[in-house]
Design a binder for these strands. Structure first.
Length: 765
DNA sequence: CTAGGGTTAG
């Protein structure tokens, strides 16, 4: 007979020291004599059997027995010399495992003189449950060497270990062993075998086992149903679902979740309604997945209804459900509610004993990041570290995105290094987020290094590096990378094209942009969405082809999208075309009467033409409608500290120095030939005031502060929440020349790298 | 057998 190739049989420790059970020496025997009726049992005809019955009932008792009670029982069995009985030993062993004390369980296991299949199975399944699958398999191997014949539970557990260890070969060996040893195949074992093959995508094997089954149950059918969902064959899975004689809650959960996984959210919603209408009871799984569904569809009311159902059914303390609730409210933009739920978590039942609070942390942090509240997310992350929660790749991915938004290069770098030190494995999500983070923080070297170190690249990895170069306006590199991606047989998605098209637009590659727009539809069958239309309007508009852009909007019948008008309006402003600006802003304000951008852009366009009447009329209208402009702010990070500036503000402790330096510098720049672009000032002011308003724009303050606080030659990295002003753009070119400093500025759309009197954007933006 | 958190653009 061939033996199983199971690694590392476990060396059992045969120790006899009871000192492994520290409470033994001073055991409070008296305190349990009333609660646990041991002594009367001992006078029964068959005290051992009675004792075994007691152990069984205690293991099912709620609340579960305390460690002291278990040790008390253990003590009693020794005193009554029952411990040599395998069934008694198994009973106590089971209690230790249920209590979660594997160390004590293993110590008892070592002391047992006779171990049967149950003894081994209790211990090895305990190890598997805490995630130590190797040890579990090692015990299995020792068990076989000890000539103890495994039962169905042992084998099912071993197959689970093979799934968790991703060890297909081992699982096949186990299956072979089962067949060779003529183990009778019952439903449970056959289901385990099916599940094993299903997890490894060995569809034919699953079907063969299912086909041969004489008796099938819900689980067998469910595995078949999920098998088809796994490969995206929703039709076939629904056929089986309708055919199944055992359709119950779990089957419904599987089809609903399966459709969600295949991105068929509205179909999933239909199924949920059908399930409810049939009067099917919703269990905790249903509630959890339907909350996720409500979040993805941004259906707040549905989410609230399910929340009500959660409270009614008493699942409010389930940790899984709490995470789903946090996720749902975050996705619906209700961060206050998410936060309240998160803060109310003290006593949630950790379902299955495997749920940890780390996931709750990561889900609330993700919520803040998704709602654009990076500072709050980072603050929460610090609290999480203080409270000793474990940082995993999920949290770190969100934090990387938060650092991208806030432009915090140093924090991002620290977290990256910290994570690498922990020795976590490679992850596509994380490396994509890090690539993006480094790029958005201005370090293309780090972004490229991260991308190069990405061993398994998918569309997202490629799209993030492509988007990074697009951010720096390096259209040629973007096109090169895009072609490289195609060479590696990675199919571009909608987002890849947004990056490519916006890069073309930012680099003035008009023909290329139009070619890729065509290729997207013809070669990849991607139907252009608002984002692509907007890129095209932007592409034409930036190039000054305003009429063509307008025609593009009409031809594609997209005049109901505000974004395309916003792009045209922005282009009209850059090219000072007041008629087109008015035309597009009329459309824009009809579509979005409360949109800040439309007012600001139009009012600015009027202002540029020095039409103060119209400009101020626009601003008054904004005030009437209660719209306020997002204040422009710029920030710079020095020695780990963030310095934020708004136009003309003197709040900074070194404000006097900053202003003094800036004023002198501007005099010098004028000698070099600079003159103020006063046409960029947005209010009707006297000439002198105009100039001073311009001179102290937030980005100028931040750059000046950077120069006076760092040694000569250090590059200056500044972030701005809005687009850079035209005058500042001119000034920074002069400054880079006059001071020999490199100025790297990230605005709302892209990077501008000023060096030796020139900007990387080539003034095309 | 079935459940929760993450990436890319605008």
């Amino acid at each position: 007979m061939r033996t199983l190739k199971i690694p590392n049989p476990v060396q059992l420790k045969n120790s006899t020291a009871l000192s492994k059970f520290p409470c033994f020496s001073h055991h409070p025997t008296r305190s349990f004599n009333n609660v646990l009726p041991i002594d009367p049992l001992l006078s029964e005809k068959n005290p051992q059997r009675a004792f075994i019955g007691l152990l069984k009932s205690i293991s099912r008792r709620s609340p579960a027995p305390s460690l002291l009670e278990i040790e008390f029982l253990h003590c009693k069995t020794i005193k009554a010399s029952f411990i040599g009985n395998t069934n008694v030993g198994n009973g106590i062993l089971n209690l230790y495992v249920k209590y979660g004390s594997i160390g004590f369980a293993h110590a008892l296991f070592d002391e047992m003189l006779q171990r049967d299949a149950l003894t081994w199975t209790i211990l090895l399944s305990a190890y598997s449950r805490i995630g130590n699958h190797e040890l579990s398999l090692g015990l299995f191997s020792t068990m076989l060497a000890d000539k103890v014949f495994p039962n169905h539970f042992t084998l099912a557990c071993v197959l689970k270990c093979c799934i968790n260890l991703n060890d297909f070969e081992m699982g096949r060996e186990v299956h072979g062993w089962i067949l060779r040893n003529g183990i009778e195949l019952d439903v449970v074992l056959q289901n385990s075998i099916m599940e094993f093959y299903a997890k490894f995508g060995a569809f034919e094997c699953v079907k063969r086992v299912f086909g041969k089954m004489i008796e099938r149950d819900v689980v067998s059918w469910n595995i078949m149903i999920s098998l088809y969902l796994q490969i995206g064959d929703t039709n076939r899975s629904m056929e089986l679902f309708r055919l199944s004689p055992f359709r119950d809650v779990s089957s419904w959960n599987i089809v609903i979740n399966g459709h969600m996984q295949n991105e068929l959210h509205s179909r999933a919603l239909q199924l949920l309604y059908e399930m409810v209408n049939l009067g099917c009871r919703l269990n905790q799984f249903t509630l959890s997945i339907s909350l996720v569904l409500a979040g993805r569809l941004v259906m707040l009311e549905l989410g609230q209804q399910i929340h009500g159902q959660v409270l009614r059914t008493g699942f409010g303390h389930d940790a899984f459900i709490k995470t789903s609730l946090i996720d749902m409210y975050s996705k619906c933009g209700k961060m206050e509610v998410s936060k309240a739920i998160f803060n109310g978590i003290h006593q949630c039942t950790y379902y299955d004993g495997l749920v940890s609070k780390d996931i709750l942390w990561s889900s609330i942090i993700a919520g803040y990041v998704q709602n654009g509240r990076s500072e709050d997310a980072i603050e929460l992350f610090r609290r999480m570290l203080r409270e000793g929660a474990k940082v995993d790749k999920f949290t770190l991915t969100s934090i990387a995105a938060a650092c991208s938004d806030a432009g915090l290069l140093e924090q991002g770098r620290q977290m990256h290094a910290c994570f690498e030190k922990l020795g976590h494995g490679f992850d596509v999500f994380l490396t994509s987020a890090l690539t993006d983070m480094y790029a958005k923080c201005g370090s293309m070297q780090d972004a490229h290094k991260t991308f190069d170190s990405t061993s398994v690249r998918n569309v997202v990895s490629w799209t993030s590096i492509i988007g990074s170069y697009a951010l720096f306006g390096q259209g040629r590199e973007v096109i090169e990378l895009y072609e490289k991606m195609l060479e590696e047989n990675i199919l571009p998605n909608e987002i890849s094209f947004v990056s490519v098209l916006s890069a073309c637009s930012h680099s003035g590659l008009i023909e290329e942009g139009q070619r890729y727009y065509k290729s997207m539809q013809e070669d990849y069958g991607i139907v252009p969405g608002v984002e692509h239309f907007t890129c095209m309007v932007d592409l034409l508009g930036r190039a000054g082809l305003l009429d063509q852009a307008k025609e593009f909007i009409q031809e594609n019948k997209i005049s109901h999208h505000s974004a395309v008008w916003r792009a045209l309006l922005a282009a009209s402003r850059v090219h000072n075309n007041i008629e087109m600006a008015i035309y597009s802003s009329e459309h824009l304000s009809r579509l979005e009467p409360y949109d800040v951008g439309s007012f600001v852009l139009l009012s600015n366009t009027y202002a540029t033409q020095r039409n103060w009447m119209e400009s101020s009329r626009m601003r008054n209208l904004m005030a009437c409608r209660g719209i306020s402009k997002q204040p422009g702010k710029s920030w710079i990070q020095l020695k780990g500290e963030l310095h934020t500036f708004i136009v003309g503000d003197r709040l900074h402790p070194r404000a006097d120095e900053i202003y003094f330096y800036l004023e002198n510098l501007l005099v010098k720049l004028k000698e070099m030939g600079y003159s103020s672009r006063i046409d960029m000032v947005l209010h009707d002011l006297e000439e002198e005031q105009v100039e001073s308003a311009l001179n102290f724009h937030s980005e100028k303050l931040a750059v000046a502060y950077g120069i006076i606080s760092t040694p000569c030659g250090t590059p200056i990295r500044v972030m701005k929440n809005l687009r850079i002003c035209v005058d500042c753009h001119v000034v920074f070119k002069y400054i880079s020349q006059a001071t020999g400093r490199e100025i790297i500025l990230r605005d709302a759309h892209r990077f501008h790298c000023f060096k030796d009197g020139r900007c990387s954007c080539g003034d095309y933006w």
